[in-house]
């Protein structure tokens, strides 16, 4: 859904660029206005990127659950929590390590490293699932993003995958969801786009937990199922849904509203971002890695 909206927005931008090219040829005097427009557009573009960085700040688009005051209070609480803990930018497919306080573990803390296979919920209910294979057994942990028992969330490898959900890793060979527990964080240059990992994984033979042949998965090698299942998949497919503008509208928050929402929290979020960057720089200088 987001992808489709993003595509639409991109095409709009392109159109605008084309117009701008035409107009600059005709009139060169109004450069200041142009610049203003460009900067405002830049800000706008940044906000539109916020919906991928902070997707949980957008409320549920279900109309019957919406209330402006509740959403405002929820956002306030979220920002308040973010002042205490750095919740970094991450996507489905990124590898995270989460440190939580656990009453029942011997050291009273527990660390888990794994790949994010799902990210869902909005507001204070935002959650994500981490998956890893530990001692030849698949382990998944669901974390609530704003749970105060979480002490630290660290992104070890920031990347995206070809799909919005990686739940098919449950039916894939274990090597695809095995990650080193003592993995070190890989640094990305600042301002660089988030890399997309084009890896295609191999599924185990059936039986599966879900009918993966129906999901139009991009990050999976060719799926071997009998022809009658493909036929059934074709029968149940709804290829017209991506053209259903009304459905997209009902399932997304309009862009104007998104700008309004991020306008409210942007100063606080930017401040938090800057402090986090400072801390990051400090840490890299203070703690050099030991070689040999």
């Amino acid at each position: 859904m987001y992808q489709t909206t993003r595509c639409v927005f991109k095409s709009k931008l392109n159109l605008k660029n084309v117009f701008r090219v035409c107009s600059t040829a005709a009139e060169t005097a109004t450069t200041t206005k142009e610049q203003e427009r460009i900067t405002s557009e830049g800000i706008r573009k940044k906000f539109t990127e916020y919906r991928y960085i902070y997707p949980e700040f957008l409320p549920s688009p279900e109309i019957k659950f919406r209330n402006a005051i509740r959403e405002k209070l929820e956002r306030k609480d979220m920002v308040a929590r973010r002042t205490q803990i750095a919740i970094p930018e991450f996507y489905v497919g990124s590898i995270l390590s989460v440190l939580t306080s656990d009453l029942h573990s011997p050291g009273k803390t527990e660390k888990f490293v794994g790949i994010c296979i799902k990210r869902e919920g909005c507001g204070l209910r935002a959650k994500f699932i981490l998956r890893n294979v530990i001692d030849h057994e698949g382990v998944e942990v669901l974390y609530e993003m704003y749970d105060p028992t979480i002490q630290k969330i660290e992104v070890l490898r920031l990347e995206k995958r070809l799909d919005d959900e990686l739940l098919y890793l449950r039916d894939a060979l274990p090597e695809y969801s095995t990650f080193d527990v003592n993995m070190e964080a890989e640094l990305l240059t600042e301002g660089a786009p988030v890399p997309i990992n084009p890896i295609k994984i191999k599924l185990k033979p059936r039986p599966w937990l879900e009918r993966w042949e129906r999901k139009n998965l991009q990050g999976v090698e060719e799926i071997n199922v009998p022809q009658h299942l493909w036929d059934r998949a074709a029968k149940s497919a709804k290829p017209w849904e991506k053209y259903d503008l009304m459905k997209t509208y009902m399932n997304t928050i309009p862009e104007e509203e998104q700008i309004e929402i991020f306008d409210e929290v942007k100063t606080q979020l930017q401040k938090l971002e800057i402090t986090r960057k400072k801390m990051k720089r400090k840490r890299t200088f203070v703690k050099p890695t030991k070689l040999a």
Binding site: R81, T83, D102, L103, K108, Y146, P148, T149
Partner: peptide
């Protein structure tokens, strides 16, 4: 727990 308080840490005693 208020959201602007630090994260919950369990001591050995609790």
């Amino acid at each position: 727990h208020c959201f602007d308080e630090p994260s919950i840490i369990f001591d050995g005693s609790t």
